[in-house]
């Protein structure tokens, strides 16, 4: 009975959200798929060209593949560095040291600052450092400083976020388990590898995938730090530049949208793997 009366209230409870959702997501999503098979500059002049955009990307678009390689390299490095750093910080900050709260506050803060602001905060600092150390500007295209600088900035930003998740995971470990191990004579290393790490495995999975998807989809920091240079572009920035950066006579919009579809498929695949992994873990425990 509850169900039947409530059912009639669809227009009040669901419809407003649904309309916004359809305008902002559903239509653009399907239109995006359609447009990736078109040559267009606006909605009205779209002209069907079949898989031409995709063929062009796979056969001739080197910038895209360089960006793809760079993104994969960047993602792998940032996942490793950020998670090792964050886990180490979380271990230190769950030891009830003096000033734990202040440290936590400081390490987490960069997360709240948006990518664009973050990028510009670092740009001058990094420029000063590379000029002092190597004598070149940070954005000098002959060297790879831009890439490594981006890694520093993203580590600085995301480490605190992952640290919070690891801290929550470590604090959830029942104290008597650790105590029992200590009484039985386990060394700190044994406690870490045999107790702490296995018990925070769910947090580790979450953090690995969060860093992965954040690094893979990175745009703001990449743009603010490195500008739109072809030497430092990650995928998201390359997609943006292909769609909006070209002049309209080359009809690069369609190719950019096709890149976006490929990008979406990769992200969907990563998410699918993640879901499968977390699901199977849940069954085990």
């Amino acid at each position: 009975m509850n169900n039947k009366t409530l059912k009639k209230y669809f227009p009040i409870f669901v419809l407003p959200t649904l309309i916004a959702f359809i305008i902002a997501f559903v239509i653009p999503f399907f239109m995006g798929i359609y447009l990736s098979f078109c040559k267009f500059t606006t909605i009205t002049d779209a002209e069907w060209v079949g898989v031409k955009n995709y063929i062009y990307i796979f056969k001739q678009d080197e910038v895209f593949f360089m960006a793809m390689k760079r993104t994969v390299k960047f993602t792998i490095l940032s996942v490793i560095i950020i998670n090792l750093g964050a886990f180490a910080l979380a271990l230190l900050l769950t030891k009830k040291l003096h000033g734990t709260n202040i440290f936590r506050t400081i390490f987490f803060m960069p997360n709240l600052i948006g990518g664009i602001v973050l990028g510009y905060i670092w740009k001058e600092t990094l420029d000063t450092i590379t000029r002092k150390l190597f004598g070149y500007a940070f954005t000098y295209s002959g060297k790879n400083y831009g890439f490594w600088g981006l890694l520093v900035v993203v580590t600085w930003q995301l480490m605190g976020y992952m640290m919070i998740i690891y801290i929550a995971g470590i604090q959830n470990i029942p104290e008597d388990v650790v105590e029992a191990a200590r009484i039985d004579g386990a060394t700190p290393a044994q406690i870490l590898f045999k107790i702490t790490i296995p018990l925070v495995m769910p947090s580790i999975t979450i953090c690995l995938f969060l860093t992965m998807s954040n690094s893979f989809k990175l745009y703001d920091q990449n743009y603010a730090l490195n500008g739109n240079s072809k030497d430092t572009r990650l995928l998201a920035l390359d997609i943006y530049e292909t769609i909006f950066g070209g002049n309209s006579s080359t009809y690069s919009e369609g190719r950019g949208q096709a890149k976006a579809v490929i990008f979406f498929l990769i992200v969907a695949l990563i998410t699918f793997v993640q879901l499968r992994l977390t699901r199977s873990k849940e069954v085990e425990s």
Binding site: T42, K217, A260, F264
Partner: peptide, 20 residues
């Protein structure tokens, strides 16, 4: 539908969203 939208990156819809 809502859950699906969470895995779609913004780059996928930004072009058509801005035109629309």
């Amino acid at each position: 539908g809502f859950v699906f939208s969470m895995i779609v990156p913004f780059q996928m819809v930004m072009c058509s969203m801005s035109l629309l």
